[in-house]
Simulated assay, not measured.
Amino acid sequence: MSFHRVNQAWGVELRHTEKIVLLALSHHAVMSTGESSPKVSRLARDCGMSESAVRESIKALEAAGHVESTPVRRGVTNYRVKVGQAA
Rank of each mutant, 00 (worst) to 15 (best):
Met1Glu: 10
Met1Phe: 03
Met1Val: 04
His4Phe: 14
Arg5Asn: 07
Gln8Cys: 15
Trp10Glu: 08
Gly11Leu: 11
Val12Met: 05
Leu14Gln: 01
Arg15Asp: 11
Arg15Ser: 11
His16Glu: 04
His16Ile: 00
His16Ala: 04
Thr17Lys: 12
Glu18Asp: 13
Leu22Gln: 02
Leu23Ile: 10
Leu23Glu: 06
Leu23Trp: 00
Leu25Glu: 07
Ser26Ala: 15
His27Arg: 14
His28Pro: 01
Ala29Lys: 08
Ala29Leu: 10
Val30Arg: 12
Val30Cys: 09
Ser32Pro: 02
Ser37Arg: 15
Lys39Thr: 07
Ser41Leu: 07
Arg42Tyr: 04
Asp46Val: 05
Asp46Phe: 00
Gly48Cys: 06
Met49Val: 00
Ser50Phe: 04
Glu51Ile: 02
Glu51Asp: 12
Val54Asp: 07
Glu56Ile: 07
Ser57Leu: 07
Ser57Arg: 05
Ile58Trp: 02
Lys59Val: 12
Glu62Gly: 06
Glu62His: 02
Ala63Ile: 01
Ala63Glu: 14
Ala64Asp: 12
Gly65Leu: 12
His66Glu: 12
Glu68Trp: 10
Ser69Cys: 11
Ser69Gln: 14
Ser69Arg: 15
Ser69Ala: 12
Thr70Met: 14
Thr70Leu: 14
Val72Asp: 13
Arg73Trp: 06
Gly75Thr: 03
Arg80Trp: 06
Val81Asp: 10
Val83Arg: 03
Gly84Asn: 08
Gly84Leu: 10
Gly84His: 06
Ala86Lys: 11
Ala86His: 07
Ala87Tyr: 04
